[in-house]
Design a protein around this nucleic acid. Structure first.
Lengths: 179, 179
DNA sequence: AATATTACCGACCGGACGGTAACAAAAGAT
DNA sequence: ATCTTTTGTTACCGTCCGGTCGGTAATATT
């Protein structure tokens, strides 16, 4: 499963054949079909696994008493961490190749992640640590910034892993404009 | 060409067959091969066309005397505009399917766009209208935010087209944190 | 000893896709 | 009116891929 996640992330779902995955596991394609019903099912399990890993990671670091601003930071840092481990297959899975049922499941995971970030934003708005107009657009913007990291050419930026999320967080919270 | 751009954007490059494109033009596939040498060449022309349209659009609105902050705003607004017209094929083209030569061309266009935004950021830093740490990360973050719009489910947000770029710009320049 | 169950394999099918060869119809130039 | 170039077409090829079928060792159950 971890191997499939990595392959999907590296080559893309479409261009990762079942033979590729099977070879990665040192078995053959029919054997794969003993464990999974279809290629889509493999993808969906990768997605589910990524979501669970995210939940675990953020549960470790989260603290409901912190201001919204800090809870948003924690969300972003955990998310970027997992992205760098090739583990969030949600991102690489183009919904257009999926069945209606699969699409619904995939969207559900995305919706839950979005819900989580939206909640943190609203907490920040209420406790006064954040200010913005439409939380949905802010959320989409944040996801866009971090999800697009999967399109970066690996090694194009010579930079420490943590530095990226630090600067993203700084940009999101404080902006780049000077008063 | 415009039709191919739209199809690539809607279905993705891999899942748009030459028969699809030909059908969209009311001709047949071999006829396509009279005008283009390969599928990749079609893609590269779409990319080139998108870049030219962007250059034209931004040349109309740009003013070198404006502060960097405003020139960044103009860049983002033009970019979002073109994205909404399905015209920036650069974004949907996964480099992993391209030949080395095609990859080089595609990257070159991306590099030029990135260069443009980086220059605007540096202008802002020099004239004091912007402040940030690493311009490359800011630039990648901005491209990520806007490029990811292609992954939004159309109509998920009931919002005026211009409002998105307004709020993105507000978020980038001023941030969402309260002092 | 007889019977299931688990986990796997070689060989194959049907369909889709990028690309090609050979041939036909417009259309302008002479 | 004919020739040539442009722009199409029909029919086909090779390859790849998701998925299936029949069969087989090995392990567990009775």
């Amino acid at each position: 499963m971890a191997i499939a996640s990595t392959m999907f992330r590296e080559r893309g779902y479409d261009r990762t054949s079942l033979d590729d995955i099977a070879a990665g596991l040192s078995i053959t394609k029919p054997s794969l079909y003993y464990h999974f019903a279809s290629k889509e099912e493999i993808l969906l399990e990768c997605i589910a696994r990524g979501y669970i890993l995210f939940q675990q990671k953020i549960a470790d670091r989260d603290d409901i008493r912190l201001p919204g601003r800090e809870r948003v930071r924690i969300f972003i840092e955990c998310y970027v961490d997992l992205l760098q481990d090739n583990v969030l297959s949600m991102i690489v899975a183009d919904e257009r190749v999926m069945s209606d049922a699969g699409k619904a499941k995939s969207r559900n995971y995305k919706r839950m992640l979005n819900r989580d970030l939206l909640d943190r934003l609203e907490v920040g708005r209420k406790d006064g640590s954040l200010a913005f107009d439409d939380a949905r657009i802010i959320s989409f913007g944040i996801f866009g910034m971090v999800n697009w990291m999967t399109h970066w050419q690996s090694g194009a930026l010579q930079i420490a892993p943590g530095a990226v999320s630090d600067q993203f967080v700084a940009m999101i919270l404080d902006g780049i404009g000077k008063p």
